[in-house]
């Protein structure tokens, strides 16, 4: 048991080290911090001076160590574009992105699961086929087009909902939330729907596939044989069993949703990390890019680790599975 946990932790650390290494390479080799910091007319002596003060004359592993040390403390240097500490910039924008991503994920679950169940149970009905084809439209519509059209309809034509920003936010300690004001809640609706569009499709198809497979298992046949009603079988057994992997995958998708928020945030001018990142890419603001990469990597690793450990705690069989070849 302990061995498994330790191994999982080690793996996570390894992943983070890899991500950190990529970020470090971005920082040191791509960005050339010296020329970024000095005016073009600087002399070679100036360059050597700065090189030394930044520790760039140190051997590679020492530099990497320093970088990791700084990164662990959240120190990613100064944004080239805004001239402020990157960690501060990210911290200011983190709540906006997380609130958007969570809302979108919840929205995806709320809409996707019923649709998935329906299409699985009424497999041959035409409505199911329409829904399934419709979900293809969902995948085929680029996120930004959905956003543009939602703005056009709900903000410009109907004037019901705001088209940009977070509305009014309330600060609770370092966290700013838009959930406590009407304006904030209204502002999140369109971006959340835009961002939730893809998860809906994914969840619907996942639920459908899972349901279809579960319904075929012996244990469901057994339940039917026991004389349980269709509803009890479908919702009491089949759906419940389907939801575990669905929720897990949605959880694991959270990292993806956060990254996808880049597009939604651009369309809606949502003041989150994604908007910061896209501006960093356009401006070649390496420190921000590197820090964002590390943060997304970290979120992914943590979510995965938590999911894995949770399963491990609940299902001791996994131990046997894990210590085997793992070849599925």
């Amino acid at each position: 048991m302990l061995a498994f946990i330790i191994r999982r932790l080690l793996q996570s650390v390894l992943v983070m080290l890899t991500v950190g290494f990529i970020a470090f390479s971005l920082f040191n080799f791509v960005g050339d911090p010296v020329s970024l910091m000095l005016p073009p007319e600087a002399t070679q002596a100036d360059r050597d001076e700065v090189r030394k003060s930044l520790g760039l004359d140190q051997p590679f592993y020492v530099q990497f160590g320093t970088f990791l040390g700084n990164a662990v403390q959240g120190n990613f240097g100064i944004s080239l574009r805004l001239g402020r500490p990157v960690s501060q910039l990210l911290a200011e924008r983190l709540p906006a992105t997380l609130e958007l991503a969570m809302t979108a994920a919840v929205f995806g679950l709320l809409v996707g699961i019923p649709m998935g169940v329906y299409t699985a149970l009424k497999r041959d009905k035409w409505t199911s086929k329409v829904l399934l084809t419709g979900s293809l439209v969902g995948v085929s519509l680029p996120n930004f087009l959905i956003g543009i059209f939602l703005i056009l309809i709900f903000a410009v034509w109907l004037g019901w909902l705001p088209s940009f920003g977070r509305g009014e936010t309330t600060a609770i300690g370092f966290w700013t939330t838009g959930f406590l004001t009407t304006e904030g809640l209204k502002a999140i609706i369109l971006p959340a729907i835009t961002l939730g569009f893809y998860p809906i499709t994914l969840i619907m198809r996942l639920v459908r596939a899972e349901m279809l497979e579960v319904l075929r298992t012996d244990y469901i046949k057994f339940a039917r044989a026991r004389g349980l009603t269709n509803n009890a079988v479908h919702f009491g057994h089949a759906l419940k069993n389907t939801l575990v992997p669905v929720i897990t995958i949605t959880g694991l998708q959270l990292g993806a949703i956060i990254a996808f928020a880049i597009i939604t945030e651009t369309v809606f001018q949502w003041p989150g990390m994604g908007l910061l990142f896209i501006q960093a890419v356009q401006f070649a603001d390496i420190p921000v890019m590197a820090a964002y990469l590390c943060l997304i990597g970290f979120i992914f690793v943590v979510v995965n680790l938590v999911v894995d450990l949770l399963y491990f705690a609940v299902d001791p069989r996994l131990r046997v599975e894990r210590s085997g070849s793992g070849g599925h």
């Binding site: 897990t248 995958i249 999911v307 069989r317 996994l318 599925h328």
Partner: peptide, 13 residues
Amino acid sequence: MVYQIRNSIRRNG
């Protein structure tokens, strides 16, 4: 990884 978990769970109703 998720795939493994799902399969192993499914095996045990």
